[in-house]
Design a protein around this nucleic acid. Structure first.
Lengths: 210, 210
DNA sequence: AAATTAACATACGACTGTGTTTGTATAATT
DNA sequence: AATTATACAAACACAGTCGTATGTTAATTT
């Protein structure tokens, strides 16, 4: 019962969506291809037609969101230095808003956090590292610009600010994703960001007063 | 070939050690009991003698470190308020030192971070949450004491300081454990802690000068 | 000394998941 | 209109893995 090309593309994407849900619920290694097939309303034959095996299915699923993942990098480095910190903070806040609103992204991140990286999933890890490294470099540069223009507190170096920000974001999201979303990610996250960035900014110089 | 009780206890603990290594390397759900048995130099019979099944083995393994886990709570709340922040910072720093030095603890944490929590592993998750909640309460109280005595910067509230600290620690350890230990956990972690705690402390009041 | 039991190893049956092969109906091609 | 390639479903063969059942040996008990 051959379907038209559009229909085939439809079942392929329904398989991907089903895989996302099943992998999220049962974990990648605990989920069987039959679980995915049933969740997609097809048989394993359809999966093996569109994908070569489970690892390939996982990688394709990862690719469906890998490009949006990279959007978290800060690219507005053309701003005046006085606003660099504000731009970074807003960018991180927006990223939290996006994650909080996008269940798809939530599930993918959760899957990625929990998945046991064996040998054949290494490309995923490598890509994650590459994105993280690029992100780190861009943050370093941005904080460095802020510091050179006197907009970074002496308590922080560009590198330490980058790390503090990244660790806070990672811890925040890990706790939220892996631990059952028991708090308001965007609200509490942005409040934390605000206080952290306040400490990034130099103390206001005392106006000569009485 | 019946062994003496001491020998039996020895094989039991060797099974636990093997399980720790194998679960760490292959992930809990990807590791078979035969993998564990071979790594321990026994057969599956020995495992089924000492443990009822794989979940039970995992839970017993978790119990071997669950008590030390709770040591990370700050219990030195009897210090003078002026030193509360220093005590918390030192406690967190010590915790990092311990983790960096104890491969056993590293593996257990990594396993816990990566393991897909299905239904029968819920007790582990619940216990983790309980420890975390207690830790949070103690930190809240400690920061509150510091604030009441004027030792907490106005930029932070006790709750926000607690969260910032916990997220930073969690992000730091997650990245180090899940991402290949590509940096010096204790050194970089303590530097980050120092800067964060510097921002927790109120700005020094300007001495009346010329 | 005989019987029992603890501490395993070995063997067995059942099931699950995987990859492949085969069947098949339909769209696309010629 | 006949052929072919596509998009699957259904069936098959096979390796793991699990739990259990049974065997075996040595320590303990009686």
């Amino acid at each position: 019962m051959r379907r038209t090309k559009a229909e085939a593309e439809e079942t392929r994407s329904s398989i991907l969506h089903a895989a996302e849900r099943v992998f999220f619920e049962k974990g990648v290694s605990n989920a069987s291809l039959d679980d995915v097939a049933k969740a997609a309303g097809v048989t394993r034959g359809a999966i093996y037609w569109h994908f070569s095996n489970k690892t390939d299915l996982f990688l394709e699923l990862y690719n469906t969101v890998s490009l949006p993942l990279e959007d978290m990098v800060v690219r507005d480095t053309e701003q005046p230095a006085s606003e660099v910190l504000g731009v970074i903070e807003a960018s991180a806040g927006n990223w939290l808003d996006d994650l909080a609103a996008d269940e798809h992204r939530q599930r993918i991140f959760t899957i990625l956090l929990r998945c046991p990286y064996d040998e054949d999933l290494m490309p995923v890890l490598d890509k994650q590292r590459e994105v993280d490294d690029r992100h780190t470099v861009m943050l370093d540069n941005a904080f460095d610009r802020a510091r050179n223009e006197g907009f970074l507190s002496g308590n922080w170096t560009p590198q330490s600010a980058t790390k503090a920000l990244r660790w806070m974001m990672e811890g925040l999201c890990s706790e939220w994703l892996l631990f059952g979303r028991r708090f308001d990610l965007a609200a509490e996250g942005k409040e934390g960001l605000k206080r952290l960035f306040d400490s990034f900014r130099p103390a206001p110089v005392a106006i000569a007063s009485a």
